[in-house]
């Protein structure tokens, strides 16, 4: 009988674990998803933030507008930086994404997650300089204190989180299938995902991977 009790309690605790794994994400979106070890998974609500832009103003997703001054239909959140060769290789593609989609309701929101103490080339003043030189048309926010990227589960630059108007994560990964060379692009993942949202469909693929620079932490 003791054995039965033991097995039963084991089975119950296992099912409890299984259930908590399958539970929908909590409101702040920081709940672990089934697919990722930390951060948000597809379908989870992305956490909002208050971060300083290169124009010294503080922005949050709740206050960001699209190019027409309207509430966005979605947000192309991209963790990127000044220094990573892969971020640099994708810089023009990020500018192009904003120029193409911000007026359609999907602005790019770039966030620089590296610790400038480890990577001086990613200091706030260096970010301002880069944004000015390249005339960034999008917000370039500084994740000061590195509190936002872990909530999203970002690990590298560049890394895209496409959110819908409800801040639900709909696509996560690379801009396209050729992060290294713009000339080699065959599939534009982010554009494909936005087109899917516009058509009321589920992005496919919803997640992709690409080489990038690990986010620099002390």
């Amino acid at each position: 009988m003791k054995y039965y009790m033991l097995i039963l309690s084991l089975a119950l605790s296992f099912s409890a674990i299984a259930c908590s794994n399958n539970a929908p994400a909590s409101q702040d979106g920081a709940e672990h998803s089934t697919e990722q070890t930390y951060g948000i998974g597809i379908g989870d609500k992305a956490p909002d933030f208050k971060l300083k832009n290169v124009d010294e103003q503080v922005y949050s997703l709740a206050t960001i507008k699209d190019d027409n001054g309207n509430q966005p239909k979605g947000y192309i959140v991209i963790f990127t930086c000044n220094t990573c060769p892969y971020a640099i290789a994708n810089e023009q593609r990020i500018i192009d994404l904003h120029n193409k989609y911000a007026s359609m309701g999907y602005p790019v929101v770039a966030i620089q997650p590296n610790d400038p103490a480890v990577q001086p080339g990613d200091s706030f003043s260096a970010m301002q300089k880069r944004a000015e030189e390249k005339n960034y048309p999008f917000l370039y926010l500084f994740d000061e204190g590195q509190t936002v990227f872990p909530q999203y589960g970002a690990t590298r630059t560049p890394e895209v989180f496409l959110l819908d108007s409800n801040l639900m994560l709909r696509y996560h990964g690379a801009i396209d299938d050729s992060a290294r060379d713009a000339e080699g692009v065959q599939v534009k993942f982010v554009e494909k995902a936005i087109n899917a949202l516009e058509a009321g469909e589920v992005p496919n693929p919803a997640t992709t991977k690409a080489l990038g620079c690990g986010i620099k932490t002390a």
Binding site: T37, T155, R156, E159, G173, A174, D177, S178, A179, R180, D181, G184, F189, P205, T208, K209, A210, L211, G212, C213, G214, I215
Partner: peptide, 20 residues
Amino acid sequence: DGHYNDWIDKVSTEWSGAIP
């Protein structure tokens, strides 16, 4: 090979693509 999405998972599904 620059088509990372085609092969990163074949090394490890745990790998996001960040190096090292």
